[in-house]
């Protein structure tokens, strides 16, 4: 029954999209749109009752996303929304296909150079300082309130200064990423290193474990969930930092540069294509970190099935 419904909805939207591309319209067309949308809503409702785990759980969000995409296409073309306002998904895809080499160049400039290097340096530095702070309680008590304060500040505003210091190329963007990722990592790692229970710590003492052994065998493992939280929070932050930093000046390449210049030229299909690239890169980055988390903290209650 659900399968049949899915088939009808898919066919309905396919027919509607074909009609709208052929330039047809009229009352019958719009009645078709309403009917198909209602059927799609029913389908999503039915899929929502599927089991919580595994592949069936993906059916509802996938159906919902596909419906939104199809409606977007039909409505934008059917109502002939101007491109400046919202380009149709097909137009975005076509433009992305044509501009693929350029998009790849922007991706390499922003993501592979600036985001990745800045992310590694920022997270690494935050982690290192947290290790030091864990050994020096005075430093820890001083750093934690400051680190929490920084979370409330618009760190990305430092971008124009760093662009001035490190030049227009990717180094300045990486520096912004470092500034943005450093503090979440520091605060989370410090909290994580303090998370090991007093009982376990006493046990390590009674074994006469050295500070290094305690760190490696007890504190780091118990800090892993916190560290991965910071790594996950930092993944989209890093991308945002690099893109916003490019608003302040960049070589003639990069995702943030492309978005601002093409938006000024009203080439919104290209801007949307760039957004899609950013979205895919951001989600993939986040997903990879989440996968690493599952592999590294398989023992943690939130991961265990």
């Amino acid at each position: 029954m659900t399968g049949l419904l899915a088939l009808i909805v898919t066919g309905g939207f396919a027919a509607l999209i074909a009609t709208v591309h052929a330039g047809a319209g009229g009352t019958g067309f719009w009645m078709g749109v309403v009917a198909t949308t209602l059927l799609a809503a029913w389908l999503v409702q039915r899929l929502g009752d599927a089991p919580d785990r595994g592949l069936p759980a993906l059916a509802a969000p996938v159906a919902f996303g596909a419906t939104v995409l199809a409606l977007w296409e039909v409505l934008v073309l059917g109502l002939s929304v101007p491109m400046v306002l919202l380009p149709a998904p097909s137009a975005i895809a076509a433009r992305a296909w044509l501009a693929a080499p350029m998009l790849w160049g922007d991706f390499a400039q922003t993501f592979l150079k600036a985001v990745l290097s800045g992310y590694v340096i920022g997270c690494g530095a935050g982690f290192a300082l947290a290790l030091v702070a864990d050994r020096l309680p005075f430093l820890r008590r001083g750093l934690l309130p400051l680190g929490n304060l920084v979370a409330a500040l618009p760190v990305v505003g430092i971008a124009p200064i760093l662009v001035m210091w490190f030049g227009f190329d990717w180094q300045s963007k990486a520096a912004v990423v470092v500034a943005m990722t450093f503090f979440p990592m520091l605060v989370n790692t410090v909290a994580g290193l303090a998370a090991a229970g007093a009982l376990e710590r006493d046990l390590m003492r009674s074994y006469a474990a050295s500070p290094g052994q305690t760190l490696w065998l007890l504190k780091l493992p118990s800090a892993l969930p916190f560290i991965f939280t910071a790594l996950k929070v930092n993944a989209p932050l890093a991308l945002i930092g690099a893109i916003v930093a490019e608003f302040f000046g960049s070589p003639t390449q990069g995702m943030g540069f492309r978005i601002t210049t093409e938006a000024a030229k009203l080439a919104l299909d290209l801007v949307w294509a760039e957004i899609v690239v950013a979205a895919v890169a951001g989600s993939a980055f986040y997903g990879l970190v989440a996968l690493a988390e599952r592999a590294a903290t398989f023992w943690h209650p939130s991961v265990r099935p």
């Binding site: 999503v44 409702q45 899929l47 929502g48 009752d49 599927a50 759980a57 509802a60 969000p61 159906a63 919902f64 996303g65 400046v84 993944a235 989209p236 991308l239 945002i240 893109i243 916003v244 995702m255 943030g256 978005i259 601002t260 938006a263 000024a264 009203l266 919104l268 801007v271 949307w272 760039e274 957004i275 950013a278 979205a279 951001g282 989600s283 980055f285 986040y286 997903g287």
Partner: peptide, 27 residues
């Protein structure tokens, strides 16, 4: 149904650099 279909997208959209959309919204 809303939870099952919409919530995954909301969570996923957290990983998207939303600020990149700013120029589009302005234009």
């Amino acid at each position: 149904a809303l939870e099952r279909s919409l919530m995954p997208w909301i969570v996923a959209s957290q990983a998207v650099p939303v600020l990149a959309l700013a120029p589009i919204v302005i234009v």
